[in-house]
Design a protein around this nucleic acid. Structure first.
Length: 561
RNA sequence: GCGCCUGUAGCUCAGCUGGAUAGAGUACCUGACUACGAAUCAGGCGGUCGCACGUUCGAAUCGUGCCAGGCGCGCCA
């Protein structure tokens, strides 16, 4: 629709240039947008305002010239000049109800686009270290990352979901020591407890399972505990597997799955880390100082150079990170998006610097990052900081258990990742329009409930409605709902381009509102056959878009509540 | 001190590739079930878009400088 109008204006402009009414060197980009106020028509363009100066005339005059030149189109019922020189388009009935037909025909495919053209995209998210249960921040990462994947897939990308986990660093040693201490019966208050040991109660569970020689199966492996209190390596392997499984269960409960679990240790085993270091040395971007090996990240926009290899030996964390990202590049992903907490934003510059220094022809801004800010959890107006199990933070599992999967996902994905959010448990539990999740789901359930009252075969008839039947829809609430439905495809595309799944959440709230307004104002199942059929078709289309939109968020669309 | 993010209604937040009178929910005040689900709807109240300057026909949106908050600034990850 938008494109047709754009072309209409473009051809009109070239006519004006040809007949000498205006002088322009090149045809501009025509911006045409949906109006907010129905009094301004359906679409409006600011083209006359934008060109007035160049064309050496005043905007309203130019707008009039354009309108005079406009060819008749079956799409457009009326054109007006408004305000300082906007051109407002009022669509014909047939043009605006087209979307209902499209939705009914395309079903779940309605709203898809080919932005990605089948290109492969890798999205890395969550990537929690296997040292404890997932916390709310990981939950936000999971909600945003997974929704982003769904969105990109709808935008025609081939998406790979990846979870990277550190099973090789100092904190894993620390984890093993903590479990060992618990096996010995020590508590965090006792002398001899490791200095930075993990204090949460879940460590006791790990220790008990280890001593009982349990087996754990996680997504990518099975480990059986030896039960030997002195075998720190065995404790370590078991603890990692145990906590990975815990995280898997949390993610499963959250409706999030990954295609690949990538182990940091594999980068050492495959010599990828060593190869990366050698390449950096060979490229002359390193130097030795104070017994350590440094990378000249300053040359690539960092504010200081960074240590790669510590004095006591061993690499700092960003070295395997660079090797990991080289690996992603070599796997052929031209687009890689890392969704992670903003508290790790300093790695962005470092990883990109390392990749540039490798001289592997990787673009400067690669990979992309979506960074999410912190989540503050509130209950009864008080900040909630502790969970019994984890000791020092609120776990994702706590939230899912308390407010449910759908509400948790919705709240964590509904805000722009860049804004710090307050997760209000009382609000998420509320079952009214304080709570947008139920508001949207209720719209869907309401339609389903109404559809159950249809005569046999009536739904099929409505689904195959001829365009002409929609002439019966003339109420302002119907127009508003149709307009809202028509925004879906554009919203999906924009959200995909901007890596912004929260736009879908906002859209759904508007769509649900338009539906509820319509539903309260007019009865669907009226006696008059044409109107009845048209309204049923409108409801079916709304149901489809609600379902598709909720699916992009990983939130269910219940038929009854 | 430096870097990244944020500052919009009492509260929680949209809007930010510049456009018409800045939106939604909530809170507070009124109304609407003999009704296809009231988990809903209609109306009212509520704003110096942190402050200042600049660019522009036009700025919440872009630029600069301040102010405030969060997060980083480790030979931790």
């Amino acid at each position: 629709m938008q494109e047709s109008l754009q072309n209409l204006i473009l051809s009109c402009l070239s006519d004006l240039i040809e007949n000498g009414t205006i002088e322009l060197d090149t045809l501009p980009k025509v911006q045409i947008e949906r109006t907010r106020d129905p009094a301004h028509g359906d679409f409006a363009t600011n083209i006359a305002l934008a060109l007035a100066k160049q064309a050496k005339t005043n905007p309203r005059q130019l707008a009039q010239n354009i309108i005079d030149q406009l060819a008749d189109s079956p799409l457009v019922a009326k054109v007006e000049i408004a305000g300082p020189g906007f051109i407002n388009f009022f669509l014909s009935k047939g043009a605006s109800t087209n979307v209902i037909r499209d939705i009914l025909e395309q079903g779940a495919n309605f709203g898809r686009n080919d932005l990605g053209q089948g290109e492969s995209v890798q999205v890395e998210f969550v990537s929690a270290n296997p040292t404890g249960p997932l916390h709310v921040g990981h939950g936000r990462g999971a909600a945003v990352g997974d929704s982003l994947c769904r969105l990109l897939s709808t935008c025609g990308y081939k998406v790979t979901r990846e979870f990277y986990y550190n099973d090789a660093g100092a904190q894993i040693d620390n984890l093993a020591l903590s479990v060992q201490s618990r096996c010995q019966g020590l508590t965090p208050e006792d002398a001899g407890w490791p200095a930075d040991g993990y204090r949460g109660d879940y460590i006791i569970d790990v220790a008990n399972a280890y001593m009982a020689q349990e087996s754990v199966q996680s997504e990518d492996r099975t480990v059986t505990a030896l039960g030997d209190i002195n075998d720190i390596q065995a404790i370590r392997d078991f603890a990692v597997a145990y906590l990975r499984r815990e995280q898997d269960l949390d993610l499963k409960a959250f409706g999030v799955q990954f295609d690949i679990y990538f182990l940091e240790s594999s980068l050492y085993e495959s010599q990828a880390v060593e190869a990366t270091v050698n390449q950096l040395i060979e490229n002359n971007f390193t130097y030795e100082e104070d017994g350590a090996l440094w990378l000249k990240t300053e040359l690539f926009g960092d504010d200081k150079n960074r240590v790669m290899r510590k004095r006591e030996g061993g690499y700092t964390y960003f070295v395997p990170d660079v090797a990991y990202h080289l690996n992603k590049w070599e796997r052929g992903f031209k687009t890689v998006i890392n969704e992670q907490g903003a508290d790790h934003h300093s790695t962005v510059t470092r990883v990109r610097a390392g990749l540039q220094a490798l001289g592997a022809n990787i673009p400067e801004g690669w990979p992309e990052y979506v960074l999410h800010q912190m989540v503050l959890v509130m209950r009864n107006g008080q900040e909630v900081k502790l969970s019994k199990r984890a000791g020092s933070y609120v776990t994702l599992r706590d939230l899912i258990d308390e407010v449910g999967r759908d509400a948790t996902r919705y709240f964590l994905v509904a805000r722009a990742p860049s804004s710090q959010i307050t997760f209000d448990i009382d609000l998420a539990l509320a079952q009214n329009n304080e709570n947008p999740v139920y508001y949207i789901q209720y719209a869907h359930a309401r339609i389903c409930s109404m559809l159950q009252k249809l005569e046999v075969g009536e739904q099929e008839t409505a689904l195959s409605s001829d365009q002409a039947i929609f002439e019966a829809l003339s109420e302002p609430q119907e127009d508003a709902l149709i307009k809202e439905l028509d925004k879906f495809a554009g919203t999906v595309k924009q959200a995909g381009e901007q890596r912004a799944p929260h736009m879908i959440a906002n859209y759904l709230k508007d769509l649900a509102a338009a539906f509820h307004t319509f539903y309260n104002a007019h009865k669907v199942l009226v006696d008059e056959p044409a109107l009845r059929q048209a309204r049923v078709a409108l409801c079916l289309a709304t149901k489809q878009v609600l379902r598709s939109g909720l699916d992009l968020l990983g939130v269910g669309a219940p038929e009854s509540m």
